[in-house]
Each structure stands twice: as C-alpha cells, then as structure tokens.
Amino acid sequence: MELKRCRKGEVIIRQGDPGECMYSIRWGGAAVYSRYGTPEERKLAELGDSDFFGEMELLDHTPCSATVVATADGTQLEVITEEDFREFLTRQPAKAYFILQRLCHKLRKTTQDYLNVCRTVYEAAEDEKNDRKQSAELERGIADICAAYREQA
C-alpha cells in the first residue's frame, strides 16, 4: 500500500476524474468540495485522521463524485488500489467493516429521502385534486426538495 504526502491546497482527487483508489488519511486533513474552483463551489465535508474517501468510486469504477483537497502541509494518505483492496479486507477488517457500515447507512438514508419526496408529491397531488390549500409544512417540504436538487445537481 502506497503512502502519499500532500501539500496544503493540493488536489487529491478531482470531481469527474476516473475513480481508481480509496484513500485513508493517516495524518493531516482534507476538505471535500462540489464544483471546486467555480463560483458554485460548495464545501461538503471536512475529513481528518483515519477518515477515508473514494471507496464508492473504487468499488463501482465510477468517476469521482467530488473534489478532495488537502488542508494541511504534510497530509499523509494511504492509497488503496483495487489490487490492494482484498488485502485491506483481510489486514484491516475492522476498518473495512466500518466502510461497509457507512455504505449501508448511506443506502438507508438515501432510500428514506427518496420515499419522502414521493410522499410529498402524493400529498401535493391530493391537495390539488381536492382543491385544498397546501399546509405550511408541505410548502416547506417542497421548498427543501428544490433547494436540495439545486445544490446537488
């Protein structure tokens, strides 16, 4: 497993690039951005020691979904390629289990978010069908969905 050292501000993975490796932060820090370097740049998360990223891209061979930038000089990363990944599972099972747990949690959360949007559509349609005014709560829910879409898409 390769170790990589980064300067502050160095781009580790870039949104849209092919996803080939998973990274684990041995020391230092990194920030996750959407649309890095553009006026729509948005910081999604801050990562520190023993955090990891890039796992979904490695598993699915999909392009990087975000840009990750080192936030400290000398940030040290463990670079785990697909070839390394099997060894990683046997050598660091607790960490690998944690990654899997996080994926499962993401799946449950995303499923719930999706079903909530469907409920909102149904409620709005029922109000429209019955010529009812939308509740403030429903209006807020619709506004939240629009805001979420504009941020993520």
Partner: peptide, 28 residues
C-alpha cells in the same frame, strides 16, 4: 465475498441516489 457485498451495496446507493435526484428534479 465481502468485496462482492460492498460492490452490491455501493451500486444500490448509486441507483437510489439517481432515483432520488430524478424525483427532486421533477418537483423542481
């Protein structure tokens, strides 16, 4: 076997995220 399970869950996250974004877009 673990790798296969991780791939499966990851793929499902991706597919569900896509459905979710499609739903949000339709509302938007």
């Amino acid at each position: 076997k673990v790798l296969a399970i991780m791939r499966q869950v990851s793929r499902r996250v991706r597919e569900t995220t896509r459905s979710y974004l499609e739903a949000c877009r339709a509302v938007c």
